[in-house]
Each structure stands twice: as C-alpha cells, then as structure tokens.
Design a protein around this nucleic acid. Structure first.
Lengths: 220, 220
DNA sequence: GTCTATAGGCTGATAGAC
DNA sequence: GTCTATCAGCCTATAGAC
C-alpha cells in the first residue's frame, strides 16, 4: 500500500503538491488551508511540503508566482498594443473570462488574498500581482485620450470593469450550490454567455457620443 | 483595574461584542477570527461570547441577521416601487454605495462568506441573504419588460452590476495601503465620485436604443 | 525522498469561583 | 455577569528512521 506512494519522483511530487495546493488554498484561503489536507489529497505526507517548499508559505508563494506570471504573459499577448481601444478592451474582457473559466482556482486564490489585504504576499509576488491588474489601465487611458471612450475616470472605470468579472467568479460557488438545491431563480449564465453580455455592456457604457466604440464580433 | 471591566451591563456587553465581532469577522473571516481577539478588543473575557451568544457561531449568526435585515429594509425603501426602472436602478446603485461607505465591515463579512460558499450561514441567515441580493433583479426584469433597458439577461446583468460596486468596497483597503506607500498610479476615487461614475456607466450600458434610460440628476 | 513521531503552541468551549 | 483555569483537540514544523 505505501509502496505505491513511494514513487520517489520529486518532480512529480512538487507538481502534485502545487496542484493540490491550488485547490485547498482557493477553498480555504492561506490561513484556513491545512497542510494535512494538502498532504492527504496529494497522497503524500504533509512533511513533504516543508521538504520541497520550505513550508506552507513557501508553497503558497511558489504557486502564486507561477500562476500570476503565466496570466500576465497571456494578457499582454491578448490585449496587444495595436487596434482600437475598444478592440483591446474587448480582448481584455475575453481574456479574463477565459482565464476565469480555465483557471477558476487562480482567481479564487487571488481574491481571498485581496480580502486578506495581501497579508501573505511576499514582495516578489506583490509586484507581479499589481503589474497583472494594472495592465488594463493603459487601455482605458488610451481610449479616453483618443476620444473613443467618454471622459471617464480611468481609475474608477478600471475598478468597476474588473469587479464585474471577478464577482462572477467569486459568486460561482454559491450559485452552483443554489442550483444544485433547486433554489436558484434562473439558470446561471455560462462564462461564454457572461463574457459576451459583459463586453457589450462595458463598451456601451464607455462609448463616447460620436463613437459607437463597439464592434469586434457583432452579435444579435 | 478589573473593577473597570466589571461593569455588569449585559446589554452593553452584547453590543460591544457584536461590534467588535463585525471588525474581527470582516478582517479574518469566520474560521480565521479568534474568540480571544474578539474578547480582548471588547475588553471582556472570551468566555462571554459563549455566555451571551452560545459560542462563536452564535455571535456570527446574530451579527449577520441583524445587519442583513437592516440593509434589506434600507434597500426596499430606497428602490421603492414607483418611477422609471432607470430611476429605481440609480437609487439601488446609490443605496449600495451608501451602505458600502457607512458599513464597510458588513460587505466584507458577506463577501468572505461568499468565498466560503456560505459554509457558516445558518438557514435563517441564508434566506435573508438571498432576499437581500435578489432585490435588484426585479428592477432589471421590469426595465427589460418595459423596453427601458436593452434585452439583457437579468441574471448576468445583476451579477455584473453588484460586482462593480462590491469590488470597490473590497479593494478599498488595498488601494489605501498602496497610496500610503506611494505606489498607486493615481488617487483613489471617493465613494461619492465612484457612485456617480458607476450610475452613469450602468445606465448607458443598459439603455435601449430608443430610450436614453438616464436622468435623475444630470451631471457634466 | 518519504514517512513516523513528536514538540511546542494555539484553538474554542466550559466548569466553577466570585 | 464576569473571570480564571483547564481540557481535549488541532495546527505547523522538524528530527530522525528508513
């Protein structure tokens, strides 16, 4: 029985611990996560967390660094630097939607850490994190400067824009819970449907009077 | 010294424990909150939590019941039942902004519980909670039915709408932290400025082609 | 590289003194 | 009504066997 766990493949152990760590940190937050739980789900002893990552904090840091860097790269590519501001903003909304759908644990981990006011972020992680969320501001400033968007405050717009997307991710567990019990007033939208709706909503909300500010895949 | 704490005013003790509980639960979540911390901040022994509320869970439940009921009453009054859907929606945005500004701890407590998928909500609290957040849906359905709003999905719209407002509240501590360290790219908007911006943004985003869907206090 | 055993410290709840 | 003392259980980290 324990022979099966004695695989002695350290790379695989590190990988499994990180993946399980994503699950447990997303579900319980840094302080609520139990190393015992991570060890058990990984079919490894919890002592392995200390051995491979130097402890709970080390595992947490390594997961976030890896995921945030990956996300930043994806977003930089998606938003790009050419095209209209509306196109770039739509690309951002779609990229965040895709990220949320493909990596729901990542957004949950980040959101929990935000509620914890970044208490468990080491400086290196903090820097990556702010760079990641600061990406869209440039697009908003550009759109306003070009007159493509109304003269909105980019800071306020940025917060509301991200909020609408992140909130969808944050409330997903509760919506699923409600639907499972048949207590939801209506079926929850899929990510694809939500992103389609939200892209249109945002571009209409920002459009200047003389610019429709919406195109890139017309819909019904 | 301990004579000062021997006030023997049970009503006052209950009140202080609830107020301090709001602070600690908002900051650490249900599981992260320490009864020792609540007792210390209340200048009472932690055993008093069990005496007055039957334990940590009892205090948590009583705080949420009280606050959610208060919020529901305020929102029902603010949104009302007459007037245009745009006016009612604007009233909702302003009421939520006011609530977030006046009771930031309440929104943080709720949001944390949302991330916990409602694990610590007793049935009675859960019911109040859903009624509270379900209030705005009726306005959206009405606006679409009247043709005042575009034919948006009320469920998706509801999520995005609330998200933009709650996110502003949730990220406030982090923004303040950044500004204190001079790492913020721009000064954070006040609640009043944000609500003004957001109301306009939302009404433009929802307006049907033949209806401006925005009035109620014209701005620049 | 992995496990077991244990250390050292913290938790929420509660019995009983006042 | 409030406090002190204490309990049983849990946590993370780590030393040492294999």
């Amino acid at each position: 029985m324990d022979a099966a766990t004695q695989i002695r493949d350290p790379e695989r152990s590190r990988k499994v611990l990180k993946q399980v760590g994503r699950e447990v940190f997303a579900e319980y937050g840094f302080e609520g996560a139990r190393t015992r739980e991570i060890g058990a789900r990984a079919a490894l002893n919890k002592a392995m967390i200390s051995y491979h990552f130097g402890g709970k904090q080390g595992l947490f840091t390594e997961i976030l660094l890896e995921d945030i860097r990956g996300a930043r790269a994806r977003f930089s590519e998606a938003v790009g630097s050419g095209g209209s501001s509306a196109e770039r903003l739509a690309a951002f909304v779609e990229a965040l939607g895709r990220l949320a759908e493909e990596r729901p644990l990542f957004l949950k981990m980040l959101s929990r850490e935000l509620l914890d006011a970044g208490r468990h972020l080491e400086p290196e992680v903090e820097e990556e994190f702010f760079g990641f969320f600061g990406l869209v501001r440039e697009v908003l400033v550009q759109g306003v400067a070009r007159g493509e968007f109304r003269a909105v405050d980019p800071h306020a717009t940025h917060i509301g824009l991200v909020g609408g997307l992140v909130w969808f991710a944050l409330t997903a567990p509760l919506r699923e819970h409600l639907e499972r019990e048949g207590r939801s007033p209506a079926p929850s939208p899929t990510w694809a449907a939500y992103v389609k709706h939200y892209r249109e909503f945002v571009l209409r909300g920002l459009a200047s009077s003389d610019s429709p500010a919406r195109e890139s895949g017309g819909n019904a």
